[in-house]
Design a protein around this nucleic acid. Structure first.
Lengths: 237, 237
DNA sequence: GACTTCAGATGACCTATGTCAATAACGTCG
DNA sequence: CGACGTTATTGACATAGGTCATCTGAAGTC
């Protein structure tokens, strides 16, 4: 199936490079193939292509296969609020479960591919495979903890601390994928960073400037090199 | 059992005044009694008594039966961050699932009683009762959406908007419990409000002052009377 | 290859909220 | 009942970050 999809080289969860990130560790080979059957693979996306819009009926959660995804809501005053950045191996869309509608919109920040996991099938499978149920409870709980750290960040930290924290978060998530934790390309714009961190573009820009002057960072547009990981961690605390 | 607990007048979930809030609507009588068997009722708490501390092994989630509970984390710089206020009928403790440890601490802001629901039993029961599984997925998802609205509030709104939003949230939650939405007692201190909303005590105090001067509110210490619900909603937007 | 557009950087200035300090009101404990 | 600690209020002042305006360079695009 999906012969027209150029990204579709890895056809099964069992073969996917990301499976150690998005699947429960305890899953048996047999169970993986059960999960495999309900996953709709591929779904290639162009930059700025939407996966779903806020308000749409909730049907599936998604795993990032390649590229990067941004989740955001729109306030009733019409302002955008970025609620998350999702990198390969990460799951998103769980905000939709509560009211059977997505509360966020999700779009590709660059060319990307996602796996779609129909939630009703996942629920049924969770009854057959208890460790899968457990895994999804854990996944959602981690999302809660994540959101709560962001709350703390916004409520207690300065602009510099916020930016440092985001950079380290991306660095760590890259390392989990066996990529460099010190040299990488930011998939999002300065505006998205500012929006996510509750700052203006100007402030983000200035913080990058200061970090460069202090030789913590080397910034070339979206390319980042972290020169002093330790000091950055101290800042992020 | 638990003869020493003076709050223990309602002995079963089926009889509990809060059950329409903390149980899934679709649950059959038979299923309610199954759930009933795993719930450990009562647990009376004094003001400032802890239900659990951050870092402790996660065993159970909790439902508020009476009184009110505050969840908070402590940053590695030692500052407290209030992450939620829980009123009767509400569930808390789900942050612990992700890493098998509570990431928040929870304490009673006044004399309170909670029901303890051992998570392992709940997981097993969820396999037997699919609508219960669904209910818990929904509950956790709603927690995510809630946290995300707080993120938006902190990231985009002024002090007045934040305070107005919190007041309306409490008013609405009181109404869900068939209590007055316009006259109520705040269970938390100004410091807790400020901490939760990313503001200082002084700012919270000033906002209350301004709201009184504008005849939106009547404030007497912790007693609140909302005089102009509409205008407050317009502010909270 | 000039023209437009957009993302990012930088400077000057402004303001909402934080900080610090003083005071008042209340509860509690000897 | 008086003394003390805690919580809330209020004022004067400081500042981090927002706002607005300008400038630069890269990426399309006709």
């Amino acid at each position: 199936m999906d012969a027209k999809c150029p990204h579709n080289t890895e056809v099964h969860c069992g073969d996917c490079r990301m499976n150690s990130l998005c699947l429960p560790l305890a899953l048996q080979t047999k169970e993986i193939s059960q999960l495999d059957e309900i996953v709709q693979r591929g779904r290639p996306l162009q930059k700025d292509g939407h996966i779903y819009h806020a308000g749409e009926e909730f049907k599936s959660i998604f795993a990032v296969r390649s590229g990067s995804i941004k989740s955001y809501t729109v306030t009733n005053q019409g302002q955008e609020q970025v609620t998350g950045f999702h990198l390969p191996g990460e799951i998103f869309g769980m905000d939709g479960i509560g009211h059977n509608r997505y509360t966020n919109s999700a779009l590709a920040m660059e060319t990307a591919a996602v796996c779609e996991i129909p939630f009703s099938s996942l629920q049924e499978l969770s009854i057959a495979i208890p460790s899968l149920q457990r895994h999804f409870f854990q996944l959602m709980s981690k999302e809660i903890t994540n959101d709560q750290s962001l709350i703390t960040l916004l409520s207690k930290n300065t602009a510099e601390e916020r930016v440092a924290t985001l950079l380290l978060s991306i660095a760590n998530r890259n390392m989990r994928r066996k990529l460099s934790g010190t040299r990488f390309r930011l998939p999002m714009s300065r505006a998205d960073i500012g929006n996510y961190l509750g700052l203006t573009v100007e402030t983000v820009s200035r913080v990058f400037g200061r970090f460069q002057k202090q030789n913590l960072l080397l910034v070339d547009k979206k390319e980042i090199e972290i020169l002093d990981f330790e000091k950055l961690q101290a800042l992020a605390n």
